[in-house]
């Protein structure tokens, strides 16, 4: 499964400035492994040392938050868009 991964500004310096990159995998966890293979410096931003999702990182498959879809086990389909988004304050 090949997907497009969209990166927030703060991650781009470790991905040669790119706003989006390609990665492969059948789950978000596998996509992350492929991302880390390509850009090893990303690992600390994506995951905790224990391999859990970073608490300030939200990951969406298309528009759906993976925390409610099985987290790193969330399935991805070919040509899905995986968006990485820092958790920030919202609310009026």
């Amino acid at each position: 499964m090949a997907v497009e991964v969209r990166l927030p500004n703060i991650f781009r310096p470790v991905a040669a400035g790119r706003a989006s990159v390609r990665a492969e995998g059948a789950t978000v966890g596998e996509v992350f492994e492929d991302l880390v293979r390509q850009y090893p410096e990303l690992r600390a931003s994506l995951l905790t040392p224990e391999g859990e999702l970073h608490r300030h990182l939200n990951v969406f498959v298309n528009d759906d938050d993976i925390r409610y879809l099985g987290k790193l086990d969330a399935k991805v389909n070919d040509e899905d868009i995986v968006t990485l988004m820092p958790a920030v304050a919202g609310g009026a």
């Binding site: 927030p8 500004n9 703060i10 931003s45 970073h54 608490r55 300030h56 990182l57 939200n58 969406f60 528009d63 759906d64 938050d65 925390r67 409610y68 968006t83 988004m85 820092p86 958790a87 920030v88 304050a89 609310g91």
Partner: peptide
């Protein structure tokens, strides 16, 4: 935002176990 550690999840969400309460979150 300079790095991910500057990110923010509201204590209102964390303290009330929002991760368990929510069933979906869409952007």
């Amino acid at each position: 935002l300079k790095n991910l550690d500057e990110g923010f999840v509201p204590p209102v969400f964390v303290d009330n176990d929002g991760y368990s309460l929510l069933d979906r979150n869409r952007v």
